[in-house]
């Protein structure tokens, strides 16, 4: 069986980068799919289904990441994750402190 390998270029747009909350959103989304989902930066590969893996990416705003999805639902997964990144992982309106 041929597993589809889908690749997308992603950019971290939210001002605070890929910290715990947006990482948690990504993990929850990634775990909805069967395929393997990896974020690659340079030589490092991070499992997008693992919050610990994602937080060790420490990806700042402007970071470019390569998404690799491999499996039967790779296309659907890649589309959904790309959309999440474009939307800033729900963190675009992170305001400066409110105090």
């Amino acid at each position: 069986m041929d597993d589809d390998l889908v690749r997308r270029q992603l950019c971290v747009t939210n001002p605070e980068g890929l910290h715990a909350r947006p990482a948690a959103k990504l993990v929850q989304l990634a775990n909805q799919f069967q395929c393997e989902i990896t974020l690659v930066r340079g030589s490092q590969r991070h499992d997008a289904k693992s919050i610990m893996d994602l937080m060790t990416l420490a990806a700042e705003q402007g970071s470019k990441l390569l998404l690799e999805a491999r499996g039967c639902d790779a296309h659907v997964a890649a589309d959904a994750i790309e959309k999440l990144f474009v939307e800033g992982l729900g963190d675009l309106d992170a305001n400066p402190d409110d105090a």
Binding site: E16, A20, R21, A24, D97
Partner: peptide, 26 residues
């Protein structure tokens, strides 16, 4: 208040019995 507000937007309970609540502050 800032930490609690951010928790409402999404938990920092990242699993394995660990949480990382946080905020920026002037």
């Amino acid at each position: 208040k800032a930490i609690l507000k951010r928790e409402e937007q999404g938990t920092t309970g990242i699993g394995r019995g660990v949480a990382v609540p946080h905020t920026k502050h002037a």
